[in-house]
Design a binder for these strands. Sequence first.
DNA 1: CTGCCTGCAAACGATTTGCACCAGC
DNA 2: GCTGGTGCAAATCGTTTGCAGGCAG
Lengths: 151, 151
Amino acid sequence: MNIRPIDQRLKELEALCREHNTPCTLQRRLVLETVLGRRDHPSADQVYEDVAGRSPGISRATVHRTLDFLVSLGLVSRACHPGHVARFDAITENHHHLVCMHCDQMIDFEDCDLPELKLPDASDSGFEVTGYRVQFRGICRECRERAGSTI
Amino acid sequence: MNIRPIDQRLKELEALCREHNTPCTLQRRLVLETVLGRRDHPSADQVYEDVAGRSPGISRATVHRTLDFLVSLGLVSRACHPGHVARFDAITENHHHLVCMHCDQMIDFEDCDLPELKLPDASDSGFEVTGYRVQFRGICRECRERAGSTI
DNA sequence: CTGCCTGCAAACGATTTGCACCAGC
DNA sequence: GCTGGTGCAAATCGTTTGCAGGCAG
């Protein structure tokens, strides 16, 4: 759960940009700084609002593109789920899912020997916890075969 | 992880509709049957495709409304996350989140004594698991206070 | 100087909403 | 017969894309 200091992350960004032969633009720095500076998992639009406050010219499209870019570098991750359409589930009890990060397919994960998690006490934060979901993320067979060894 | 038989679920739907003084329409039955009959967490559009095959007149809007209705009854749950906008996270390691099911706010959950989950072997299903997220779902303080005791 | 990134605006896809009609109770 | 659920179409919201111009390397 360690967040490295922002400066160090910006250095990582510069190094990774160099490594990928792609410019380390002001916008990329600003978007990364913004995500690092928040602990509430902002949406793309919230990042846009923040960044636009400091750099008025920026466009929403750039924020989206930049976030995707940062995810592809591994500097930022997508909270929630990879795709963006709502999905529904006939099982209302707590259980686990396997999610493919390439094609967004999502299946139940049955035969695991994971312990039933006890609901934690999050009352410090004011939260009343009523259930949970565990999302195991990875790559499904089809996507692995399709992509060969390039992943 | 027990799915009750479809007939029993349909009975539950009828009972709950009666209890809420709202009609148990054909569309509601069809949508519920469809979600129960699939184990792959269909999106609203996939449910629509299925239902439209059996009942050509149905509209997408009704499928959305019906799914929301079934979720509110507790017969179906939303997989992934409650809202539908992508959210980003500066922490790329495995960790836990608290998600408010009312306002969709999402925060990190730090001080929990949950064990680090070992990545399960899901190779039967062809999945290569690379990470996980645990979503604890509940109601945040503000939403609880705002709603009073009506939740 | 060159290529890629950016800003803009239009396109797109999923979901929501307003309204007239129809079906369940 | 009333109420509220449905179908349709338009509106909305988040995200993506095509293209001309600007900036990092």
